[in-house]
């Protein structure tokens, strides 16, 4: 009776011991040397493996940081300056601070403003639809609304708004990793300077068509009239291909351009509401739009 219990126990223990010895020897013999700082740096990184830094994952990025001379071109947008400082401490270098950023969608063409002219019936992928044709509205620059960006966001910061059919960025969750910027086949996402209180002013349009055509296809399209360009006191606005662009690093949030825009394609978000008074008739379009609009994008 004892033997039937004892022998297997002894045999298995012996086997286990033998395996342990072999494993130990093999591990010693075939050890690969690795800079121990890589582990430390990886520890300091957020560990989201989002690829926002341009590397496949945090481990790769840690290797790149350790092996590089300086931090030139290496930045973890998710961890931000804090993380980079921690990494700098580990490696005994200086870190260069960057201003925090946030992603914005440069399209406001919801179903209401941008009527559908055909129905898309392929797979639910912006990449596939974009390779196929100009989209289910007349605007071939705008959001396709199939959610490739939502799919790639590892931080749960993007969601489709079922009413507008456009993705919505959750500013508090967005880490500006840039995954959506890469995923969008229409290049509608832009990483902009993050202002206090998540205040934002930007041109929510990428339509390069001539004014009339753009307007016909989408009532909140930028028509390239350059009124905002003229009114901007800080030279933050540039005009290119019938399209205005506000540089978020030059913009001082004066909101003059917002009132000027005849199609209300410049959005202001995170500001207290304006008084319903317009000076010299400008900004009528904006107020008109706001009356019919629900929540802002």
């Amino acid at each position: 009776m004892t033997s039937t219990i004892l022998y297997p126990v002894i045999a298995l223990s012996a086997l286990g011991l033998l395996a342990a010895v072999v494993l130990y020897l093999v591990a010693q013999r075939f050890r690969v040397f690795e800079d121990p700082r890589i582990d430390e740096v990886e520890e300091a990184l957020p560990g989201a493996n989002c690829g926002g830094c341009g590397y496949a994952g945090c481990r790769n990025f840690a290797e790149a940081l350790v092996n590089s001379e300086s931090f030139e071109g290496l930045y973890c947008p998710v961890g931000g300056n804090e993380t980079m400082e921690a990494v700098a401490r580990i490696l005994g270098r200086e870190s260069t601070a960057k201003e925090p950023q946030v992603a914005v969608l440069r399209c406001n063409g919801s179903c209401e403003y941008r009527p559908k002219i055909n129905q898309y019936d392929g797979v639910s992928s912006c990449a596939v639809a974009s390779a196929l044709y100009g989209g289910d509205t007349g605007c071939q620059y705008g959001c396709l609304g199939l959610g490739d960006c939502v799919e790639v966001c590892t931080f749960d910061a993007l969601h489709m708004d079922p009413v507008t059919g456009l993705p919505v960025v959750d500013d508090d969750k967005c880490t500006a990793c840039g995954a959506c910027v890469k995923a969008c086949p229409r290049n509608l996402f832009e990483l902009r300077k993050r202002w206090k209180g998540n205040k934002k002013i930007y041109v929510a349009c990428m339509n390069e068509d001539k004014g009339g055509i753009a307007r016909k296809n989408c009532s909140v399209a930028c028509i390239g009239c350059a009124k905002c360009f003229k009114v901007c006191p800080y030279e933050a606005i540039t005009m290119n291909n019938n399209l205005a662009f506000i540089d978020s690093y030059k913009c001082k949030l004066c909101r003059k351009c917002v009132l000027e825009c005849p199609t209300a394609s410049i959005l202001e978000i995170g500001f207290p509401p304006r008084k319903e008074k317009t000076s010299e008739g400008v900004g009528e379009a904006r107020i008109e739009k706001e009356k019919t609009k629900g929540t802002d994008a």
């Binding site: 559908k116 002219i117 055909n118 129905q119 898309y120 019936d121 196929l132 289910d136």
Partner: peptide, 9 residues
């Protein structure tokens, strides 16, 4: 009666 349908081949 409806909008045209578009899908890949």
């Amino acid at each position: 009666s409806q909008l045209l349908t578009i899908s890949p081949s």
